[in-house]
Simulated assay, not measured.
Amino acid sequence: MTFDAVIVGGSYAGLSAAMMLARARRSVLVIDSGLPRNRFAAHSHGVLGLDGIGGGELLRQAKAQLLDYPSVRWISDTATDAQVTVDGFAVHTAGGDTWATRKLLLATGVRDALPDLPGLSERWGHSVLHCPYCHGYEVGGGAIGLLGGHALSSMMAGVLADWGQVTLFAQGMTLEDDAIATLQRRGVRIETSEVVALEGEAPQLSAALLADGRRIDLRALFVTARQHMGSPLVEQLGCALDESPVGVLVRVDAQKQTTVPGVYAAGDASVMGNITLASAEGVRAGVSLHHALVAEDSTAA
Rank of each mutant, 00 (worst) to 15 (best):
G49E: 08
W74R: 04
S71W: 02
R23N: 04
L59S: 02
R39I: 07
R60F: 08
E57M: 01
A41E: 05
A41W: 04
G55E: 07
L67T: 03
R73W: 05
Q65W: 01
G10E: 04
P70G: 10
D68T: 12
L29Y: 05
W74E: 02
G34H: 07
V28N: 10
G54L: 08
Y12L: 13
D32C: 09
V6I: 15
R26I: 12
H43Q: 13
G49Y: 07
R39W: 05
D4T: 12
S44Q: 09
G34Q: 03
R26A: 09
L21Y: 07
S71M: 12
S76D: 15
A22T: 06
L48R: 12
F40E: 13
R60P: 08
D32N: 13
G54V: 01
I7G: 00
Y12R: 11
L48G: 08
G55L: 08
G46R: 08
P36L: 02
R23L: 02
P36Y: 05
A17W: 11
G54E: 02
D4Q: 14
M20L: 08
S16H: 09
L59T: 05
G52L: 01
P36E: 02
Q61R: 15
D51V: 02
L66G: 01
V28D: 05
S16T: 13
D51R: 01
S16C: 08
G9T: 10
M20Q: 14
S11M: 05
G9F: 11
G46E: 04
G56R: 14
P36N: 03
V72H: 01
L21M: 14
D77P: 11
A24T: 04
A62G: 15
S33W: 00
L35C: 07
G9L: 11
L48Q: 10
L58A: 13
R26M: 10
L35G: 00
H45W: 13
D77S: 08
R37P: 03
Y69C: 06
A17Y: 08
V72F: 04
S71D: 12
Y12C: 12
D51T: 00
I31A: 01
L48A: 14
L67M: 14
I7Y: 07
L48P: 14
S76F: 03
W74D: 05
